[in-house]
């Protein structure tokens, strides 16, 4: 109760800050100087009708590179965190290692070991309970599938619930559309609302639908990792090309700018956008797959 009162006071104070900010806020009626600069210069210098893409990929291109690096690190760290363990021994070893690393008392490792043992015992009990529960569910599943006269392919799919007919058929209809739409959003990033990140997220949502409709499917994570690594390498190479041939790192003007609004225009921006789309799509798919285990 005490904690709730403290939290209420804190939220109230935040509310006061926010209220002051809303009270002092006046809606702008003209662009700020920097924004005015971007809005007037982007169509002329870069040839992008979509000024936000121009800012993201060129004026703030370094930020975008950092963002992609963050996404890469997240994919890597999620993979590290959700890596399958060999067994209970490795977990116990890790926990005792952690405690010895602190170099406190000699009693601690023993404590940790007993703790780990207790945790292992609890886990074994939970696993037993789980196993019995699973036996029940597989039993009901078997009954259900027998009633539906639907043959169960193997034991792995039997323990999971099969996706319904609607999900499977809907996926077959929607999946090509989702991937096409994702590709469209990626390559139209310099002309209209869209770009690499948005399109990549759409592609990854398609991958998620695919994994939902076929739970037994294995995603080729190794291939996806190679694809995204090469996309990242090419992205940096394009940045260096900009440094050599044009004004600076990630300057897309080493390719002809073309006419404003044409599909092939805006220098290297569509290429960078496509690379970003591939990279983000592959990375998000890998993250989704890691969480599936």
């Amino acid at each position: 109760m005490m904690r709730h009162i403290l939290v209420a006071i804190l939220v109230l104070l935040f509310g006061l800050i926010f209220a002051r900010m809303v009270g002092g806020y006046v809606e702008l009626d003209a662009l700020r100087p920097l924004a005015l600069d971007y809005v007037t210069r982007a169509p002329v210098e870069l040839g992008t009708p979509n000024i936000i893409t121009g800012i993201l990929i060129t004026y703030r291109g370094f930020d975008t590179l950092g963002e992609v690096a963050v996404l890469f690190m997240v994919a890597a760290s999620v993979g590290l965190l959700l890596k399958k363990d060999d067994g209970k021994a490795s977990v116990a070893k890790v926990s005792s290692d952690k405690v010895t690393g602190e170099k406190t008392a000699a009693a601690k490792p023993v404590l940790a070991r007993t703790e780990a043992a207790r945790a292992a015992a609890a886990r074994a009990a939970a696993a037993k309970a789980n196993a019995s529960a699973r036996a029940v569910t597989t039993g009901t599943m078997a009954v259900k599938s027998a009633r539906g006269a639907e043959p169960v392919e193997d034991e792995e799919t039997a323990s999971q619930r099969e996706p319904s007919e609607i999900v499977r058929t809907g996926t077959e209809v929607l999946l090509p559309l989702i991937f096409t739409f994702g590709a469209y959003v990626i390559v139209n990033g310099h002309l209209s609302a869209g770009g690499g990140f948005q399109g990549g997220a759409i592609v990854a949502s398609g991958v998620m639908l695919m994994l939902l409709s076929r739970p037994g499917m294995k995603l080729n994570v190794a291939l996806l990792s190679i694809v995204e690594s090469f996309a990242g390498v090419f992205y940096v190479c394009l940045g260096i090309l900009g440094l050599v041939l044009a004004g600076g790192f990630l300057d897309p003007r080493f390719l002809p700018i073309g006419t404003l609004g044409a599909f092939i225009s805006a220098g290297a921006i569509p290429i960078i956008s496509a690379l970003l789309g591939i990279k983000v799509g592959a990375e998000l798919s890998v993250i989704i797959d890691r969480f599936r285990s």
């Binding site: 971007y38 000024i51 936000i52």
Partner: peptide, 23 residues
């Protein structure tokens, strides 16, 4: 802030929203 038929480059500085927060 997307230039097309409805928003000409000359018009953009007066009618487009600030693109920086969006980016």
């Amino acid at each position: 802030p997307i230039l097309d038929v409805a928003l000409s480059p000359a018009d953009a500085p007066h009618r487009a929203i600030d693109p920086i927060p969006s980016a």
